[in-house]
């Protein structure tokens, strides 16, 4: 049997660290995730640091002439990305823990280390 044919897809861990509107990297990261999802990649998303702020509901960035990032984020489950890992420490730091635009799985430091260990490739945005 051709070994390439049965080779599993690479597990890609995308680590997001940027706030939604202060830096275009946040949107560009989600754009990458959409593309990867469309190509049926094995993708895991981890929101840590300021990136947890991307998940807040009721954002209305038209006031600052930007597009709503949560609309793009909410499209990811349509492409089969259902696992949104969120750093519980970062949530605690900002005092937010519910009312998010996508379903989330809260993870602690140890669980996050595991995500890194289990990934084949890590992309940092």
């Amino acid at each position: 049997m051709n070994s390439n044919a049965i080779k599993a897809r690479k597990k890609v861990l995308v680590i997001l660290t940027q706030s939604p509107y202060g830096n275009a990297l946040s949107r560009e990261a989600i754009d990458y995730c959409l593309a990867a999802a469309a190509f049926e990649q094995d993708l895991t998303l981890l929101f840590t640091g300021d990136a947890v702020l991307q998940l807040i509901n009721d954002q209305n960035p038209s006031t600052i002439n930007q597009k709503d990032l949560t609309k793009t984020l909410s499209a990811l489950p349509i492409y089969g990305i259902n696992q949104f890992y969120v750093d519980s420490n970062a949530l605690e730091q900002y005092g937010i823990d519910n009312d998010f635009c996508v379903p989330t799985i809260k993870v602690d430091v140890k669980e996050i280390s595991e995500l890194l260990v289990n990934a084949d490739t890590i992309l940092n945005f």
């Binding site: 890609v12 593309a35 990867a36 190509f39 990649q41 992309l123």
Partner: peptide
């Protein structure tokens, strides 16, 4: 080219190194 090229690169490379801003 499109982001598909980055997807393809992660699939076909032994190592992907990010050079942050």
């Amino acid at each position: 080219s499109g982001l598909g090229q980055l997807v393809d690169a992660t699939e076909h490379s032994d190592r992907v190194i990010t050079f942050g801003p």
